[in-house]
Simulated scan of single mutants.
Amino acid sequence: MARPGVSKAEVQRARMGLMKAGKHPSIDAIRIELGNTGSKATIYRHLKEIEADEGGVSSPQASVSEELQAFVANLAGRLEYEAKERLDILQSGHAAQLKRVCEALERTQADARTARLEIERLAAELAGERARRQELEADLAATRLERAEQTAQLGAQVTGLQEQLKAARSHIASLEEKHDNAREALEHFRQSSREQRDREARQHEQQLQYLQGELRASSEALTAKHTELRNGLQEKADALAQLTGVRAEKRQLDDLLRELKPAAQRLAAQTQVADDLRAQASRANSQYETLLARATALGERNLELERQLAALSASAQAQDQLMKDVLARIGSAGNPPMLTQAES
């Protein structure tokens, strides 16, 4: 390793030794005399101090040419020192500028990587949205097909139920008509029976009075009356038998009405089923409208994602172009020459 530094006394001894030997005490000669140690700037600084101490006058033993050579050597050393200082300033400025450019390049590259990752993420999200959109479109098509099938089935079921309802109403109307006819016949029979009983009662009373008046008069008339009475009783028995038949027919009509009640209940249940099917059709319509609105929203979301993807792609291309321009400027600027310097 080099020594910590050369001192002013060492530089002065080397200078005096070169001058006594008849050599010009240049910076390079003094450095060689010192064993190739010490920086030229340090040697130049010590030489300026020595010349200032000597009052700018060389040794009496030195000639004019030697003084001129010393002046030229000192001037060259000074120029070299100033050039080195300017070069150090330029190198430090260039290093700082290069550092800033490298940092900007690293930030640009990081932004580009981030943009690429964002583009990849958005592309994956767009692919997922497209897949979900395809699934929703398939679900929507299936829902439409199912809705059409349900509509056809509901139409067929409603038509069948309407036909059954019409047949049931017709049957009920026929039964009601029969029931009304039976009720009218029964009422008519009751009225006739009541009138007949009243008539027979009046006749019986008249006959009884007549028989009481004529009992003593004629037994033959009494026998005839008894025969007539038996005939009346027979007619009454026939009327009662007819009444019993009508009552049996009424009971049959009542049984038929009781049998029709479950049919009416089933008809009411079928009507409820038809209402439920209509409600299902309404819900299917609502679901179809919801799916359609969702598909429209997804389409708008896809358009927005595609716009974002285009904007990010343009930004990434601009950043790549900026990075290429920076690299091109760095390559055209080049690196300034560096002086080899050995610090003692």
Rank of each mutant, 00 (worst) to 15 (best):
A248G: 12
E125H: 09
A297V: 09
Q280H: 04
E195A: 08
Y44I: 06
G128D: 02
G160E: 14
G331T: 10
M323K: 06
E85M: 02
K20L: 00
E195T: 10
R202C: 05
L98K: 06
L257V: 11
A201T: 04
R202E: 03
E163F: 01
Q308P: 00
L243R: 08
H46K: 13
L243Q: 12
A263L: 13
L68N: 02
D325N: 05
Q203V: 02
R3Y: 04
A185P: 03
H179R: 12
E67N: 03
P4T: 05
M19S: 12
M16T: 12
D275A: 14
L312N: 00
Q319V: 07
Q280F: 02
A141L: 15
A73S: 11
V64I: 05
R230L: 08
R247M: 07
A2M: 08
A115S: 10
A95K: 15
G17R: 15
S92Q: 06
L87N: 10
Q280D: 06
D53G: 04
A295M: 04
E33T: 01
E176Q: 15
A268E: 14
R132G: 00
R301L: 09
R283Y: 09
N335L: 04
L256E: 01
A127K: 05
L105H: 03
A138F: 07
L75Q: 06
A95H: 03
Y81R: 02
Q191C: 00
R329L: 04
S286Y: 02
A182F: 14
H179C: 01
F189D: 04
R86V: 07
E125S: 13
I172N: 04
A274I: 08
L215E: 05
D53I: 10
E49F: 00
L208A: 13
Q341H: 05
V72L: 15
